[in-house]
Structures are given as C-alpha cells and as structure tokens.
Nucleic acid binder design. Structure first.
Lengths: 143, 143
DNA sequence: CACAGAAATAACAATTATTGTTACAACAAG
DNA sequence: CTTGTTGTAACAATAATTGTTATTTCTGTG
C-alpha cells in the first residue's frame, strides 16, 4: 500500500486550526492548512469533510468561509481522529474461507481474531491517552 | 489497499505445519498448506520463504520436499511472525515535508511520532503474549 | 542415469487504497 | 454582482496484496 498518513494529516490539520483560532482568527481555510501540511487543498477538504461528519469540525461556505473546531483541542484525542480516518481493523482475517474439512481451517479464524481484538484494544488505549492539546503543547515546547 | 491478511496466513501456515509434524509427518508441502488456507501454493511459498529468511522454518527441495518448523510452536510468538511479514510502521508520517516556516509544520512530526512509537510498542506487547502453541490449543479446544 | 515431485522464481493481471491534481458547481458575504 | 471558498466529481499515478501461470532447479527414488 502506499504510506498511510491519514491520521498524521488529520491531526496536523486539526492542531493547526486550533492554534490559528487561539491566535484570534475566526476560520481557517483549506488553502492555509494545505500550505502547512504541504499538500493539495482538496486532500485537506476531503479529510476534514470526514471529520465534520464525526462532529469534530464545522465548515462555512461562501466568501470568508473556512473551518472551525467543534470542540476544544483538549477534548479531541488521537483515538477520536483515528476512529474517523482509519476505520476497519489493522489485520484482516482470511480473504477466502479456509478449508472447513481441516481442524486448523475451522478454528484458526476465531482463535486469531481474539488476539487481534486485544491488539486493537491496546492500540486504542494508547491513542486515547493523547489529546490534540498534548500534541500542540509538545509542538510549541519544541520550538 | 487490499485487505492485509499476511499475518493471518502466515500464522495459519505455521500452525498447520506444527500440527502436521506433531501427528508424525516429516514435512508439509505448500500444496497441502494452501488447501487448508484456501489459496494458491505460490502464495504460501512466498510467505514461508520470508519466514525462512527469519529462521522460523526450513525447506527441503527435490522429491519428498516441503517445509518444517525450525522451532517448536511454543517458541514462536505472533510478534515473531509479525516482525517478518509486516515490517514498517502502522502509521506513516507526512509523505512530503511540512512547511518549515510554520510552527506546527516544524514540530508536528516529532510530536506525533512519539505517540506512534508508544502505540507500536503496545501492539508488540500484545502480539508477544501469544505463541502459536496458544493458537493451536485454542484451535483444538474449539473443535 | 532417468524420472517424478516439489520448491524457487519470474512475470503478469486484478483489485484496492492512498495521494495528488484539475475542473467546476454551489454558496454566501460584501 | 463579484469574489473567495467549500463541495464534489473525475482522473491519473503509485504502490501493496493476492492470485495465477509457466518455467527452472533441485533431490530422492527406482
């Protein structure tokens, strides 16, 4: 697969909007965000559009339009973002059903899925520990 | 990307070889394994070839050839397998370098990478907790 | 030595996700 | 009405996974 930087780009975008608003601006445009991220504005709009669907950001249209956070940075965890931009499991089970006449073929699916579920849970616990406020703090501290 | 079932197929293959050997057989052919997994033998050979490079299996060529485990199932964790078949991080950073003239552009990479590292570590801890012996036990218990 | 069975390997197509890009429609502030 | 920006569609480029076919290489056995 090509590199999957959706979570990175989404977190970057939200953090940028948060800092921009904190500095007194009303709305951030996808053009501005794209400049900081170094990508195309449409990429930003697509991602932020998904995040809007999850209630993390709002958008205004028309002249003077742009994006605003729906919640404070401190109320958005990386897990919140991850859930939106990376749905679906990290590991897939078999693409085709394994041989039902084989013990291993019959039992391996459920057996390994139990492990995958634990792995996902551990991942989510880690992602939930960090808010975008934490990220912004680290960003500013490193400057 | 297409579904990533490499870890699942690899674990299935190794578990199958382990059970087959435990039942008194010398070597397992990719044809047999492919039947249980329900895929093409070449897919199995490719994966097992990578696992051989990591010292998890051996292969014999010629007539009566096939695959054998290099270690007991109890000495192979899912992390061992994962390391071989899914190298590289779960989350990628930016594809293109973010704007160095922007505070967020400068700092977001290291800030978020620290989180990603913690997530990977948590994932690996979980994967290391399960051996293929555990998997086989669950498989047989469910039968 | 010849044969047969199986791995080793190369090559290709199909599918899919991500990313970047262009173009244009929809919309709202002034 | 003009202008700036989102909303959206459409497309290409890239890349990874998976499946498949075909061919070569190796080795045990008769």
């Amino acid at each position: 697969m090509s590199a999957n930087s959706r979570l990175t780009i989404a977190a970057h975008s939200l953090t940028w909007i948060g800092l921009y608003q904190r500095r007194g601006h009303e709305v951030a445009t996808s053009e501005q965000i794209a400049t900081s991220v170094n990508t195309n504005p449409v990429v930003i709009r697509r991602l932020l559009g998904e995040l809007r669907g999850a209630g993390l950001v709002d958008s205004r249209r028309g002249a003077g339009a742009g994006w605003t956070l729906s919640r404070d940075l401190a109320a958005i965890t990386l897990l919140d973002v991850h859930r939106v931009v990376e749905p679906g499991p990290v590991f897939a089970l078999h693409r085709a059903t394994p041989d039902p006449d084989c013990v291993v073929g019959r039992g391996i699916g459920p057996a390994i899925k139990a492990v995958y579920d634990d792995v996902e849970a551990a991942m989510q616990r880690e992602l939930a520990r960090t808010t975008l406020e934490d990220v912004l703090r680290d960003v500013l501290a490193a400057d």
